[in-house]
Write a protein that binds this DNA or RNA. Structure first.
Lengths: 206, 206
DNA sequence: AAATATTAAACAAACGTTTAATTTAAACAA
DNA sequence: TTGTTTAAATTAAACGTTTGTTTAATATTT
């Protein structure tokens, strides 16, 4: 689907509102008003509100696999590449956290008829990239073998999102008063924690 | 607020529907129909739909404290107690996953005016229990010291919820066709993965 | 002149809530 | 136990809004 500038503008406004208020909470009138277009333009451009969400997902569904592949094929040690991959992943999900929140919520919403298959296929592709890397590291004797590879990404992403979904709590205990403090915490403290966790897991005997 | 049996019944039905469809997606009529009561009973008993959500949160978060003290004071090694604690925590969040999902999404919904403070206070209480345990283990020389204690729970809970929020993907790669398979996966594979991850993290040198 | 974009107005359906009438349950005195 | 009174529970119907979408007219580009 070809998207012109105005359509992309509407999608980005919609993404913000849907992440803030949920799909049902973000009415087409609110989206149209925030994007400064007429209500009818949403139906005109996307067909329906549901199709707007699908368009947003497709638009955001992205080039992650390519970037991960390039990082993993770098000429450095396995553990260094783990660090690089995790830093990349956290940077990406932090930048796209609104979209991920929508995915988490709307893909498990029984009323929504979204293209789950496309999303699953996307994840399967990404998964195989990681799987190959881990298995290569195991063959090289760097990583231990009794690891559930499918749960490594949930641990990486989950740590970030559990932080994100409990922001009020972490704001208190780490004094994260503004957006800058929060970004710093994510890119330093949290990233280091996850890097350490995964490296520990991948080298932990028994 | 005193709750009679019928009110609790309505709350539990509402919890299921809100977790499945979101607060805006779960209309009072759907809730009333599923609970087999007249629509007016929701206003009659709770005042409004928003107040029903508040009542649900109060009902659920009042006994939120992880009864971890008994597990952590058992007469076993630090690493064994880590295993016990994680198994307990995963069991609890799996049983209360619907409520957690509502918390994750509705507490960060800008249209909702929920009492965040009560929830944060609960989390702070739970946090201090874990913090004391980890520090004791560090003093005993079992756990390493350069760990961000505040991020241990996000890693535990996050791994579970990232699995839960991406169920369609995991159903495919692990052939989790029914609820039983899913429970088994959570209580065996996923629990073991988290136990191993946290033990590795807590004993990982640099 | 033809195609595309934009608009205000209207549509039926669904929303949360309130009303007023009725049924059920509890309390009490005879 | 009985009939009566009072309060609580339950109901169908209606309320005014808001919802997503469509229409038909107008404006703008091509």
């Amino acid at each position: 689907m070809e998207l012109n500038e105005k359509q992309i503008h509407i999608l980005l406004v919609a993404e913000k509102l849907i992440a803030e208020s949920g799909f049902d909470g973000a009415s087409v009138r609110k989206i149209a008003k925030a994007a400064k277009v007429n209500v009818a333009m949403i139906s005109y451009y996307f067909g329906s509100k549901e199709k707007l969400l699908s368009a947003l997902m497709t638009y955001r569904t992205s080039d992650f696999r390519i970037k991960a592949e390039s990082v993993l094929s770098e000429n450095s040690s396995y553990l260094e590449r783990v660090d690089l991959l995790i830093a990349l992943v956290i940077k990406r999900i932090h930048a796209n956290r609104r979209m991920y929140k929508i995915v988490h919520f709307e893909y498990s919403n029984e009323n929504r008829k979204l293209d789950v298959e496309h999303y699953v296929n996307q994840k399967l592709e990404n998964y195989s990239v990681i799987e190959n890397f881990i298995k290569a590291g195991q063959e090289a004797g760097v990583f231990t073998k009794n690891v559930d590879i499918s749960l490594i990404f949930p641990t990486i992403l989950g740590t970030y999102f559990n932080f994100y979904y409990n922001k009020p709590f972490f704001k208190v205990i780490h004094h994260l008063d503004n957006a800058n403090d929060l970004d710093d915490f994510v890119f330093n403290t949290l990233t280091k924690h996850v890097q350490k966790t995964i490296k520990a897991l991948l080298t932990y005997e028994i």
